[in-house]
């Protein structure tokens, strides 16, 4: 465990909890893509099936349980508890256009053709693109609440920190996983445009709004 990996995990945790708190405190999930959140729940579910088969460390197990619990709680808030505030009209990205190709790719390009390994690969590929419905929604409405942008920044930062962690591990441990690295690069690249807007607008005290 190096510092980039740890800060990456913490950034991920901050993002997830920030979103959950925002929805809970405002009693509203306006501006949040339910489709992205369902896909994140699917990502955690398919990746952490080894929670029952492969014990790594208390840290590892606890974090997995927190990520899973929070992501299911978020989905519950959007589609059940605060359903009335869900902006379904603007959440129009076709999720099947991501899930089906990603599923096909996980079958074709994986380390080992076993159910757990294919599901792990699927989760890595799906995570890399799962934020697209959320980014699409912001493009469509032309704006995002500041707290939502903090969430997105922490979520994007997490994978960027993992990329540095992978460079570190390659040099110091001779460890690398090409599937995770390529997907992690794709995932981070998708956030670049948002990072630019976040730094130039939100950090200067302005609301994130796109030109009409």
């Amino acid at each position: 465990m190096n510092v980039f990996r740890l800060t990456g995990d913490l950034s991920h945790l901050v993002a997830i909890i920030l979103l959950l708190l925002k929805i809970w405190k405002t009693r509203s999930c306006a501006g949040i893509s339910g489709k992205s959140q369902v896909m994140f729940a699917l990502v955690f579910t398919t990746r952490y099936l080894d929670l029952f088969t492969n014990f790594i460390s208390p840290y590892n197990s606890v974090m997995k349980v927190i990520y899973l619990g929070c992501s299911y709680a978020t989905v519950y808030m959007i589609y059940m508890k605060f359903k009335a505030s869900y902006d379904g009209n603007h959440d129009t990205f076709r999720a099947e256009f991501l899930i089906i190709p990603v599923g096909g790719l996980a079958f074709l390009v994986n380390h080992e053709f076993t159910p757990l390994e294919i599901l792990w690969t699927f989760s890595i590929y799906l995570e890399s693109v799962a934020i697209l419905p959320q980014l699409f929604m912001i493009t469509k409405t032309g704006e995002a609440e500041t707290i939502t942008t903090h969430y997105l920044f922490a979520l994007g930062l997490y994978r960027a920190l993992y990329l540095i962690n992978w460079i570190w591990r390659y040099y110091f441990e001779g460890f690398f996983d090409l599937i995770a690295i390529v997907a992690g690069c794709v995932q981070t690249i998708l956030y670049c445009d948002f990072f630019y807007l976040y730094i130039t607008k939100v950090l200067h005290g302005k609301k994130l709004s796109l030109p009409a």
Binding site: N54, N60, Y67, E112, F176
Partner: peptide, 10 residues
């Protein structure tokens, strides 16, 4: 082939 990942990452 990539090193088989010991899945200690989250």
């Amino acid at each position: 082939c990539a090193t088989k990942q010991k899945k200690d990452e989250l």
